[in-house]
Amino acid sequence: MVRKQPAGPEDARPEADPTVWLVDASIYVFRAWFTLPEGITDREGHPANAVLGFGEFLVRLLTRNATAATAFAFDESLASSARRQIYPAYKANRPPAPESLKRQFRLCRSLVRALGRVELASTRHEADDIIGTLARRHQARGVPVHLITADKDLTQLVGPRDLWWEFQQDRRMDARAVEKHLGVRPDQVADQLALAGDKVDNIPGVPGIGMATAARLLRRFGTLDELLADPGRVAQMQVRGAKRIAALLEEHRDTVRLARQLTGINCDVDDLPPDLDLAPTTPDRAALQALMDTLGIEGARRVRWQALIERLEGKS
């Protein structure tokens, strides 16, 4: 888990944490936008509930650990995403973000940069794919990864030394906990989602097959490819409705293969620099002060944000 840093001289920065933190940032922006009152505005009267809520999330997160290499991945353009090109109905059930929210997303990204952390987005790849690519790079080097998100899809990235971490509830799962919770190993999660479908992302699955049944099938056959090689074998399983499930798999084989292209995270995004450095840098105090002024941050909230700046500068 997160290690406490040893005490040292006041002007010395603590030793860097060896883990890498990969943050699914958009989830926490949307959560603030949905939960905080719309009447919260900045100095110019623009809505500011999402950016202020996200800022509070940053204060809590970075106060926990000021030294870990960290990247914040944002979703930028669903319309031009690779998955939408494969399946035009992908996430088509979601209304487009209003301009007021887009403006707040830009401010959130500016805030991350001003705090000396890396923020990333792509017009072709989703935040999940950015996180997946960075996770695989660091896992290959033997570096533990913390996936900070509330999205179950990212559990497929959890390796032997990693954690899926829903920060707001402080709920953490390692690979064994993922298997206990979902019924499959992390490397089987994308197959499970392809079979069951995902209503949140508008991904089709096999009608009548949910996550529990998908897990049981994958525990028996191992992989989706092995299962679909001969769906008729399912009829021999000691499962209620086995013959019906076998027939459904045969009927919806093409749908499942299409869904699998959508549920799997791309861990080889080609527009991320191969030598991307995620180490924290010194915060831009002037930019942060300007942002706080623009957002109208005063009182106890300004004190908290100022304290974070000093912590990130190694002064506290």
Rank of each mutant, 00 (worst) to 15 (best):
Q5S: 03
Q5K: 04
P6H: 06
D11E: 05
E15N: 03
P18V: 06
Y28M: 00
V29L: 05
R31G: 02
R31F: 00
W33R: 12
T35S: 15
E38M: 12
I40S: 07
I40G: 09
R43I: 09
P47G: 12
A48R: 12
G53R: 06
E56R: 12
F57A: 04
R64I: 01
A66M: 01
A68F: 01
A69C: 00
A71K: 07
S80V: 02
S81W: 13
S81E: 05
R83A: 06
R84N: 05
K91M: 08
K91L: 05
N93E: 11
N93P: 02
P96G: 07
A97M: 15
E99V: 11
S100I: 02
F105Y: 09
R109T: 05
S110N: 04
S110R: 15
L111D: 04
L115G: 04
G116F: 08
G116P: 02
A121G: 10
D128V: 06
G132S: 04
T133F: 02
L134E: 10
R137E: 08
H138A: 00
Q139E: 08
G142R: 01
T149F: 01
D151S: 05
D151K: 03
D151A: 04
K152F: 09
Q156G: 06
G159I: 13
G159R: 10
P160Q: 09
D162M: 06
L163K: 01
W164T: 04
W165L: 10
E166W: 02
F167E: 06
F167S: 00
Q168F: 00
D170F: 01
R172M: 13
M173V: 03
A175P: 04
L182Y: 14
V184D: 09
V184I: 10
R185T: 14
P186D: 13
D191T: 08
D191K: 02
K199R: 06
N202T: 07
G205M: 11
G208H: 09
I209A: 04
G210Y: 10
T213F: 12
R216Q: 15
L218M: 11
R219A: 14
F221L: 13
T223A: 10
D225C: 09
L228K: 02
A229D: 14
A229C: 11
P231I: 11
G232K: 13
A235N: 08
V239T: 12
K243F: 01
A246M: 09
A259N: 07
C267R: 14
C267I: 12
V269Y: 04
V269I: 08
L272D: 04
L272K: 07
P273Q: 03
P273W: 01
L276D: 05
L276H: 02
D277T: 05
D284L: 14
R285F: 03
A286Y: 00
L288H: 06
Q289V: 15
M292R: 13
I297G: 03
R301I: 10
R302Q: 10
W305L: 12
Q306V: 14
L308A: 10
I309Y: 01
R311I: 01
R311P: 01
E313A: 14
G314Q: 03
S316Q: 11
S316Y: 01
